[in-house]
Design a protein around this nucleic acid. Sequence first.
RNA 1: GGGCCUGUAGCUCAGUCAGGUAGAGCAUCCGGCUUUUAACCGGACGGUCGCGGGUUCGAACCCCGUCAGGCCCGCCA
Length: 533
Amino acid sequence: MHWADVVALNLSRRGNKHIVSTGITPSGEFHIGHLREILTGDMIARAASDSGLDVDFIFIVDDADPLRRVYPFLDEEYAKFIGHQIGDIPAPKADGKPDYQSYESTGWNYADHFLNPFLDALATIGVRPRIVKNLASYKSGKFTECAKIACDNSDKIKEIIERVSSRELPDNWFPWSPLNSNGSLEGVSVTGYEFPLVHYTDADGNTGSSDLTKGEGKLPWRIDWPAKWSWIGVTCEAFGKDHGASGGSYDTGKEISQLFGYDAPQPLVYEWISLKGKGAMSSSSGNTIGPMEALQLVPPEILRYLIAQSKPNKAIEFDAGMSLVNLADDYERNSLRDFDNELADENLSRRRRVQIEDAQVAIKLSAIGKTGKSNNSTVSFRHLALLAQTKSDDQLVWESLGFTNDSQPSDLLRDRLEKMRTWISSEHFPDEMKIVIIEHVPEDLLNELVEEEIQVLNKLTELLDQCEWSNESISNCIVESAKSLDKSPRLAYNVSYVCLMGSKKGPRLAPILTELPKSNIINQLRRCIEFIQ
RNA sequence: GGGCCUGUAGCUCAGUCAGGUAGAGCAUCCGGCUUUUAACCGGACGGUCGCGGGUUCGAACCCCGUCAGGCCCGCCA
């Protein structure tokens, strides 16, 4: 059974109504790793919905979290905002300086700045969660009840965290972080509490009170999380392995949740995505591929497939080069399969059956729309990569694919070609996929040519030299060079590849040659002939 | 110190929860296809299931131990 269906099955045992939750702190640029959080949740929600459950899918934006430090992409001016909540400070401009103007005129803040492009990317891949903003929730009193319980039971909560995570909390630890009069959470110590006020002394020695019903502060993460479960009614949440470790925040949250009179949600721990050869993704180190960037390269369903086809506890190594081609191939191959027909065979082993079923569900979950078939255009990713390289004009690509004035390519297909061109011209496009006409003489391969191949090569060179340089006539020359000697056209193609591309196989040759200067090709062939003699 | 995840064919991984003849895709090789979209079709090759014990009629799967890689118990998806 597919992992998403397994979770859905577990959920059905808990009840009929479900809220699947995900959450991210928008402290910097989003990357592919964040996509796993959201897509994992989205796929669970879809699977649960498909199994007949009533499901709401939400995305909690942790914009109440403080700015931890001045990240490399920020100007030093941000130092004064350290400790301030990211939903309450200006967004950085392109030069990293705070954009006070937009902040004051429209309220455009740091969190929105990073969140909004991500939401756009989500919409493109068919994910439209209900957005819950944490900061606004605090301010409107959603957290009040849990915050009161937490503060009334601070000893119990402290005991749970110390026992479960086996770490020691300071004596003055308190389950509420008050905001000081400057709006900072940093260096503020709690000195007393009577509901609804938490009294504090800040780093500068100023004293004050924070009203927890008005969100003048926040719950520390380990309490904030279970509080959200409780007031939102979260029944299922996928989270990264960092939260899922033994003694991690899920473990403590589970017990704290009981204090709030709420059963912790069904967990699903997922592994991280790393960039091949570069380690884990990290916004601050710049070691990232953003969702938007990835979406500029591949069709969105392939990005979904990346997540759908691998089990959550498998680490994914991602790169925007060959892995992308292989992933696309895999996706396209599978989306053409007739799964129902395959499953109809009663002699299938259990293993084989599971394999087919998982592939079927992975394809289903990769579709952008909730219903309907996957957006299966007739051209493969690999093929499009060839066409885009050999034909500089889009119109020639469409002609090659059999489109005429009467049948124009779909917008989807046009979009895919545009993405392909972006990818090809990007640093990510792998050498392996590049069509290159070699200029050196491939000596080792030429030595392997047999007599009849050499004859064909001579004939081919002769015919091409007289040939009109167009797609059709080049194609004819290649075939004719073999046929005139009573040989298979395949021989002519083989020797062409050896001489021109340095390999025994290759893509359709004529369209590529058409794009290149005739004299270069003839000269290269002549150099090869000279070598043989 | 405590814990989690991973280890199965050259590569990527299913299969482990519910023990029952070791599985896919890719790659490679061979054949087919008389103009080849790195295509397609057919076939072959390929594994002491990290290692050692135990339970069992039977173990990749359950139990104990062990090795290796990654990670967590401040923050991070």
